[in-house]
Nucleic acid binder design. Structure first.
Lengths: 94, 94
DNA sequence: CCTTGATATAAGCATATTCGAATATATTTT
DNA sequence: AAAATATATTCGAATATGCTTATATCAAGG
């Protein structure tokens, strides 16, 4: 199987607790940065940094709505599928 | 959705080109470390280190066969499913 | 036992990530 | 235009990763 470099970028982007929570929240629906601050134990600057990483990985994108940016998961089948697999995965064998 | 800490460990383990290639190869069938050295452009020590990370993430395990260790992907549905999703994912929108 | 083949671990260094603090930019409101 | 709101960027310190080299372990054969 050919391993695409993009795959690693996506996996790296998701391989962080805060970023994984961000995409899980965004799968529920579009959110602006301010509302994410209410959901996550992280500063505004930090959330913005994580969103930048997710944007670079092409995992999320946003629409501008006045001064706000409404983020959403582009490629929701991929991201949602990954989360479904993780959720349904049996616990690792002892 | 509840984010399990284990998920991040799994994603981090897979978020590396060499390790992703290792698991892709192991999905094809059990392999010992020596045979992996023929497939990958990495040193024995380096491959062993990567296998250690994959082991800690409970992504792979091995059976001892004399002096050799035959590695395999434990939880193949999870890992295979992740690779399938990545392979089939549409390219990120421009 | 001593050697050899197979694998793992440790030490060291270079590079990358992470996060907080401060600052910058853009938009709306007054 | 100034102030307030929303978000991004920059910088620096701490920490983590990745890789190389060297060394250790461990099982099998002689």
């Amino acid at each position: 199987m050919v391993i695409e470099k993009d795959w690693v970028v996506v996996l790296k982007a998701l391989a962080h607790p805060t970023r994984l929570r961000i995409v899980a929240e965004l799968l529920q629906g579009t959110k602006c940065v301010t509302s994410m601050q209410d959901l996550l134990p992280a500063s505004q600057a930090n959330i913005s940094q994580h969103l930048g990483i997710l944007r670079n990985a092409r995992v999320v994108d946003f629409t501008q709505d006045g001064a706000q940016r409404c983020y959403y998961v582009c490629r929701p089948e991929l991201v949602g599928g990954l989360l479904d697999l993780l959720r349904d995965a049996p616990s690792p064998p002892a």
